[in-house]
Design a binder for these strands. Sequence first.
DNA 1: TAACCTTATACTTATCCTGAGCATAATGGA
DNA 2: TCCATTATGCTCAGGATAAGTATAAGGTTA
Lengths: 316, 316
Amino acid sequence: MAKVPRKAETSIDAITADLVAVLVAVTEGEPKIMTIANATALPSGPFQFGHRSLQTGLRAWVEAQTGHPLGYVEQLYTFADHGRTGDARAPHRISISYLGLTREDQVREGSEGHWSGWYEYFPWEDHRAGTPPLIAKIVTPRLRAWAKSAESTSMQKARWQRAAITFGLDDRTWNEELVLQRYELLYEASLIPEAVRDERTGDAVVPGRAMISDHRRILATGIARLRAKIKYRPVVFELMPAEFTLLQLQRSVEALAGRTVHKQNFRRLIEQQELVEETGAMAADTVGRPAKLFRFRHGVVAERAVVGTKLPLSRS
Amino acid sequence: MAKVPRKAETSIDAITADLVAVLVAVTEGEPKIMTIANATALPSGPFQFGHRSLQTGLRAWVEAQTGHPLGYVEQLYTFADHGRTGDARAPHRISISYLGLTREDQVREGSEGHWSGWYEYFPWEDHRAGTPPLIAKIVTPRLRAWAKSAESTSMQKARWQRAAITFGLDDRTWNEELVLQRYELLYEASLIPEAVRDERTGDAVVPGRAMISDHRRILATGIARLRAKIKYRPVVFELMPAEFTLLQLQRSVEALAGRTVHKQNFRRLIEQQELVEETGAMAADTVGRPAKLFRFRHGVVAERAVVGTKLPLSRS
DNA sequence: TAACCTTATACTTATCCTGAGCATAATGGA
DNA sequence: TCCATTATGCTCAGGATAAGTATAAGGTTA
């Protein structure tokens, strides 16, 4: 590599790397994530010599722990666990996280894999039925108190502005992509269990299941990435069955985005982009007028490649 | 971490991690990257125990090697060098790459840091003066030959379609964001030195400076990221001096994007978004009508936070 | 000094995209 | 038959965008 000074003993800088997966599926209009350890952890394990690549290692761990094979995978983020171990001399540990998309399927018997609804971990993120009450009842007053507790007036203002932007307060609109920013804000304000656990003081009064280590933060990163990505890449289809109605597709998008979309506009956008084609069959066992069944046109991946796809999730 | 089977000896899975930086500046309308080792490598070095975090480590290496402090930094990608070392039993090495943005400045005396124009490494990426001739003269015929050399007719078609999409051939429009895809295509087609070096056969006929290891690929990743990001986040300002004219700003954007933009529309967009404010002064020593000087309104970062910024770089 | 070159800056226009709503169609059940 | 429910077609207004025209304000040069 570069001509740079190195320590003589390279083994001194040895570290270990953990591979962590945010594996997502959507069932019956609910977004799910694969969890282990009684729904308190994401599938994960160390990168080992036997693994030919990082993704290979990740796939091995997820299959071993959940019995579920990985399909579409993309990298999320890499970070070093710092200060977690009290010993500063202890070997560093790096976590490399991935986002995976599949269809929910049978989890192997005896495995500890379990599908959990992701809004159990982030109840403030589900705005499909309007702004969840806990934001006005719990989050907002607590954040206001946190802002007020800052030393200077300017810091108080800055804190509140940040809270208002991330949670869409004071006439601001809700931005569903700010999942990570909201999580980090709640952490800093010591309103969630992880913050209290990591030796901060606070109440942890905001509802929502916690996870071990940084796993809930990683999950937030994954959700944010997915919410951003469905707007310009046809990744939703990775989560759909082979055939589906446009309403089912819409419900999946809404489940991920945590907000509703205008039905007619949604159909217009999907159809004019030629993302789907009719199968010829109709949906059975439905209420109301039967809907046409569609399938994803795999051709678009080749035709337009990475070029893009739009979903009506922009403003309001 | 998770309750999963682990090897008893954790040290067995020890690896080393390299930190690599794509450090960008724009001077006189030309995009530059910081290089070392006679412009054949990016600043990099191993993550060591002394480093409190990955970014800390990165900053330490870049400053040590180039004398240039790091400003804005974001993570790019993490990958494992596989198959590079002949020995499959050798410890794994991971590279964690970052994108950094600064203003060009004095490189410390005696350091090996050097600013290189990034189009020296990717001559086919600069479309500011129209499509560069080497695309029609060299790239296109070579890719066509590569496509034809595939076994089946369908594979030939698929190869050519991929080439046409990434390089904007056959009436398709050039998409400046596909930097990485283009690099990887040229690699697969064995048209660049890295491919030949890595034990593929081929001619390496496409002009452009190569780099050691995966560094040119990492650079491609960084350019792609930056080209995508300037369209929706006000990151260009990290590369600008404190005061600048709108044309200077435009030239910087064009330098990064590798294409020109409509001057009037550019100004309209910048001004209506209130990204900048007049300093009151005018630019001196210029040809033509003197331009107003502007400065970046730092307020927008707080006000709109991550919400976004647009630049007229969409189609055409 | 006047023509002209260069850049700055203000407006105009046609087109496309987007959000939102109205209207109608096709089912099953009360 | 009426109604609830979902599907599907269509319109319309406002905003954003691409592209072009026109004018202003400097310096340079014939």
